[in-house]
C-alpha cells in the first residue's frame, strides 16, 4: 500500500546541500510491522515525514493505496493525512490547555464530525488505552506514559490505515515504554500498518521487518 520510488530529498542548509534521502525505493504491505533504525542524520525521520505527507520529496514518486500522492495540493494532502495516517511523536505533542479528551477529539473536530458522535468515539478510544478515568485531566496532570497513551488514542481515533511512531518511547521510562509498545503492537495485530522509528535496538528487533538506514540510504532490509 505504501510505495516509494526513487525518492530523493535534498535540504539546503546555508550554501550546503544535504542529501537526507538518496534514491530510496521501498514498498510496504498493509498490516506490516516495520522498524526503521539508524544513526542520527541517517534520514529515518525524513523518511517517516515523507510517508506521513508532512514533507515532499525533491524527486521520485510516492504512491499511497495505489494513488499518486506526490503532488497533491494542501487541502487534499491534509485530508489524506487526516483519514489515512496517525502520528505518535517522541514529545507527545498534546495541546496543554485542552483536556485529554479534547486532545483526543482534535482529529474529529478537524474532520467536522458532530459533538455527540465525537464524545462516543473519544470514550471508546480512551477506554482502549486504559485512560477512561483520566479523560478530563489536562496533560500536565498526567504522567509521561499516560500522555503518550493519550497521544495514541488521538492517533487511532480516525481509524487510520497507517500508524507512524517517531521515537515513541524516547521520552519515557522503560516500564511506560513497554506499555506503549504493547499498545502499538496491539493496533498492528488489529490490522494497522505500524512503522516505528527508534534508536532502541530492543524495540527495533521486535518488528517483523527491520530497516537500517545510513546516509540517506536503506542499507539493510531484514524480514524475520
Amino acid at each position: 500500500m505504501i510505495e516509494l520510488r526513487n525518492i530523493h530529498r535534498v535540504f539546503h542548509v546555508g550554501d550546503q546541500q544535504v542529501h537526507a534521502l538518496n534514491d530510496v525505493t521501498l514498498s510496504i504491505q498493509p498490516g506490516e510491522y516495520l522498524s526503521i533504525m539508524g544513526p542520527s542524520g541517517s534520514g529515518k525521520s525524513t523518511l517517516l515525514h515523507l510517508i506521513g505527507l508532512l514533507d515532499r520529496p525533491t524527486s521520485g514518486r510516492y504512491l499511497l493505496d495505489e494513488r499518486d500522492v506526490t503532488d497533491l495540493d494542501d487541502a487534499e494532502t491534509a485530508r489524506v493525512r487526516r483519514e489515512t495516517i496517525g502520528f505518535v511523536f517522541q514529545f507527545f505533542h498534546l495541546v496543554s490547555r485542552l483536556s485529554a479528551a479534547d486532545n483526543v477529539a482534535l482529529p474529529l473536530v478537524l474532520a467536522g464530525i458532530a459533538p455527540t458522535e465525537r464524545a462516543q468515539r473519544v470514550a471508546a478510544v480512551m477506554q482502549a488505552v486504559g485512560l477512561a478515568d483520566r479523560a478530563h485531566h489536562r496533560p500536565d496532570q498526567l504522567s509521561g506514559g499516560q500522555r503518550q497513551r493519550v497521544a495514541m488514542a488521538r492517533a487511532t481515533i480516525m481509524a487510520p490505515a497507517v500508524i507512524l511512531a517517531d521515537e515513541p518511547t524516547g521520552n519515557l521510562d522503560s516500564a511506560s515504554g513497554k506499555e506503549v509498545i504493547a499498545l502499538l503492537e496491539q493496533l498492528n495485530t488489529r490490522g494497522m500498518t505500524l512503522i516505528i522509528v527508534t534508536h532502541d535496538a530492543d524495540i527495533g528487533r521486535r518488528a517483523r521487518r527491520r530497516l537500517k538506514m545510513m546516509d540517506g540510504r536503506i542499507v539493510e532490509d531484514d524480514s524475520a
Partner: peptide, 16 residues
Amino acid sequence: TSEIGLLKALGAPGRD
C-alpha cells in the same frame, strides 16, 4: 508553532 505543526499532522489544511 508546535501546536500548528500538530494540527497540520492531524490533518488540518492551511485554510483551517
